[in-house]
Design a protein around this nucleic acid. Sequence first.
DNA 1: CCTCAGGTTGACACCATGTCAAGCAAGGAC
DNA 2: GTCCTTGCTTGACATGGTGTCAACCTGAGG
Lengths: 209, 209
Amino acid sequence: MSSKDGDTRVVILEAARRLVTEPGRRSVSMAEIASAAGVSRQAVYLHFETRTQLLVALVRHVDEVHGFAALLRKCERASDGRAVLAEFIGAWAGYVARITDVARAMRAAGATDEDAALAWRDRMGGFTRVCAGFVARLEAEGALADDWSASDAADFLATLLSIGNWQELIEERGWSRPRYVRAMRRSVEQSLLDPVQSKTLETAARRRS
Amino acid sequence: MSSKDGDTRVVILEAARRLVTEPGRRSVSMAEIASAAGVSRQAVYLHFETRTQLLVALVRHVDEVHGFAALLRKCERASDGRAVLAEFIGAWAGYVARITDVARAMRAAGATDEDAALAWRDRMGGFTRVCAGFVARLEAEGALADDWSASDAADFLATLLSIGNWQELIEERGWSRPRYVRAMRRSVEQSLLDPVQSKTLETAARRRS
DNA sequence: CCTCAGGTTGACACCATGTCAAGCAAGGAC
DNA sequence: GTCCTTGCTTGACATGGTGTCAACCTGAGG
């Protein structure tokens, strides 16, 4: 819309996002994306080598627009690891709601395309690192239940909070977001955090109030 | 190989299973299945209307061969709900290992094919019912943590034990089966079961030994 | 005025699913 | 032996997707 205008590339990505987000859609072809972007099919190939690479770019694009990094930074300002985690679960539930369609498309592509699968795995690796960060902080504060190794706890946390589980609970089983957040917080609290310290903190909180 | 031999249908299903189970495979075409079954591509269509229906039949076939029902019945003979669940998690880990490839193929098909998605959802519904059974028993025995509704607990349990999570932990993150079983048992124990009763039972067990 | 980057058009190769029609081979009924 | 049916084969075809190619067009900047 301005000067050099749309950077066709972005126009295409936005069109793709719009299509992918359309309810009830089961797959999006390059031709559809092109036409939705008001551009020829070939133009899409001028900007993205393959469908998979377009999807990868789309994921990055959506992340940039919605700012996962900022969300994360905000959560990490909470008082302690336990609070960070609770905060994050709430924010994450909202975040996933915005990226779920793109994630589904990416995962679908991964079913047949090796590269797409790689890209997806890569992303999941990033998420695991985030979770590992949470766990490290918990551990440093002595809040990690002692029957978990840090590595196991990070893997488990990442799996529990995975987009797949979000989709399963919210999209398939129709859970509301608060219901999801409550269940996840509870489960994480009870299975990952040190029960002794939890008790102490609870008591302290009760006394304070 | 003999007289009336293989009921071509079964030969095809076995070939499909073999292919799908092949390591590193990313998708299986009708042509491949046909040739692996030593039969023409059209013959496959004489037995299965569509690729999706073949996959559905394959899932049923595999279930029959490996007997999920029997496994379940065996677990349910355990002394109480808590034990049933622990038992089941162990058996389930082994069972999923045998069906994971077929499940993956089915899920992949669901990404583009509405019917396949339906069939998959149907199956998951069955699994949820099984989990609801466990939860009902726990509840009847007063072993369900009181901050869970039965319905939430069943959904959550089914999600936690979902094939997706199994694949995530064991295939993607390289967990061993015992590691998976330990983590799942622990998590279920701590986030679903009534902590008061748990404590009591533990103490009793310790006293007994 | 020329060039060139970015886009268009239209054709094509390739591969998958699913359909169709004609033919073939063996076994049972008569 | 003939006929019919059943189960399979062969080969062609429609459709729809991805990805490639070549030729052409057009507007902005040197």
